[in-house]
């Protein structure tokens, strides 16, 4: 089962890298869906099937579809590839990559060395917490979603 973890991890990294390198928005979105699905696999291998499912359904499903809609509304895609290429000369990558690398090294050097005894933490425990001690947080999350809904509606409305 640890194979699943590493395979998912490698796929996630590669597809994410491709997301940020892509010039075609639609392609990038497909890679992002792939990346998210791979992370869902990683979740599953870590013994969190509920979260893995949510990742696949909500993230890779709902949110990405939202992106797709917008991309279609803005009519981005094939036609803007040339423009994207012009926006991405090689020198632009230099500073961010260096900074991100330093950050990564900084993070890695602070990791504890430890092993995870993977045990499944199922839906029952999660929902027990959600409707027990975290019920207020769930309510607040619903408020946040409602606010997001209303403001998105208001902002995207054409005058």
């Amino acid at each position: 089962m640890s194979f699943l973890f590493y395979a998912g991890g490698v796929v996630a990294l590669i597809s994410t890298l491709l997301v940020i390198l892509q010039t075609n928005v639609v392609h990038a979105l497909i890679y992002l869906v792939l990346s998210l699905l791979a992370v869902a696999v990683v979740f599953f291998s870590l013994g969190a099937p509920f979260v893995a499912l949510l990742e696949a359904i909500v993230y890779a499903g709902a949110i990405m579809v939202l992106f797709l809609f917008v991309v279609m509304m803005l009519n981005l895609g094939q036609t803007t590839r040339e423009q994207e290429k012009a926006w991405l000369p090689t020198k632009v990558w230099f500073v961010p990559v260096v900074l991100a690398t330093i950050l990564l090294i900084g993070l890695l050097s602070s990791f504890p060395v430890n092993s995870i005894e993977v045990a499944e933490v199922g839906v029952m425990e999660v929902s027990g917490l959600l409707f027990g001690p975290y019920v207020l947080a769930v309510e607040l999350a619903s408020f946040l979603l409602l606010a997001g809904l209303i403001s998105a509606y208001h902002l995207a409305k054409s005058r």
Partner: peptide
Amino acid sequence: LSIVIGIVLLVSAGA
């Protein structure tokens, strides 16, 4: 970028 530089400095300092 400037936020990132700040974070990098903090994290490297911590690390």
